[in-house]
Write a protein that binds this DNA or RNA. Structure first.
Lengths: 188, 188
DNA sequence: GTCTATATGACGATAGAC
DNA sequence: GTCTATCGTCATATAGAC
């Protein structure tokens, strides 16, 4: 029961994919035009400027990730939650050489408008907050280890995951993501 | 006793600065032309293609960082070595909003030639190897904590530092770099 | 080595017909 | 909504005079 995607939806989807691969300054309306099968002027009808497009892209991406996080069973032990999160994080690495959209936009942030910075910051905070709760649970259970405040440890963990997808793609291996996961896992 | 820089040296220096700020696809020969005060055709005389320029930029940047690492006193305790490294890592954050050149190029890697990937990989490996030795020393001394193999922990630490400069710039604060440092520091 | 001049194409964006 | 046509600008890059 696949629903046909509108042109607008296709544009946003491909924009997300392309930016996760090449960054904001590495794709063009022409790229989207060829992928979707409409002229660039039609894309400008939906998104007058590239800034409008990237803002909608990051909002949709954020919603998708938040939805995936809410779908994680709260009854799971924390180490399994972290394993799921790590898999989610590296999901697009193997097939498309893509990294997290908001990690990529954080690299391009100095060439982007303030509204995008706000949206990317919100994504970071939401993920760090989710990870902080997982770490807190894990410490109580004894399935994870985290020094200091969970919020501080979660920021470090999130940064390590962002850095690791970058390195994973650079070296063509997913092993580096698992290194990170192991660092916060309690020794059994 | 300041030596006058040649045009070639100025071009490479400014290319490094600009890429650390906006990435490979976010600066142009025109930008360099205005900064150095020569025409773009003169820059093409030294670097026929942009790929030639970025390759020399990453090599020079790597040499500078390697030189700074060799200048670290081997007699220092490991936690102080890590503190120095963290400072070195975030040095360009405050004034210029710049992140590590090789972290930035890792984000842009899918738009860059293979030779650049090799050079960036070499930079990653060299830094991870240096950090692995520091962690090893720190564990022996009891000044740092690291689970598992030092090489694996060093990869995680390096990724966390790369991710943290990204986040530090995004949020306009250096606190996130210190979060990372604290994570590997032994509780006193 | 540095310049003027130019080739060639990509880019984001808009006007207006249908 | 989608198109054709186009504008103005910027990009990388080269040829050839000085």
């Amino acid at each position: 029961m696949e629903t046909k995607l509108t042109v607008r939806e296709q544009v946003v989807d491909h924009a997300i994919t392309l930016m996760m691969l090449r960054g904001y300054n590495g794709f063009s309306y022409r790229d989207l035009s060829e992928l979707v099968g409409v002229k660039t002027s039609s894309i400008h009808y939906y998104f007058p400027s590239k800034d409008d497009l990237v803002l909608e892209a990051v909002n949709q991406y954020s919603n998708e990730v938040m939805h995936a996080l809410k779908a994680v069973d709260p009854a799971l032990p924390a180490n399994e939650k972290l394993a799921m999160y790590t898999r989610l994080f590296g999901k697009t690495l193997g097939d498309g050489n893509q990294i997290c959209l908001c990690g990529m936009l954080a690299a391009d942030i100095e060439t982007l408008p303030e509204a995008v910075r706000q949206a990317v910051q919100a994504f970071f905070r939401a993920n760090e907050s989710w990870l902080a709760k997982v770490l807190e649970q894990g410490v109580k259970e004894g399935t994870l280890v985290a020094k200091g405040k969970p919020e501080s440890a979660a920021r470090t963990l999130f940064a390590a995951l962002q850095g690791s997808v970058l390195a994973s793609r650079l070296f063509h291996t997913k092993a580096r993501l698992e290194d990170v996961q192991a660092t916060w896992k309690a020794v059994s």
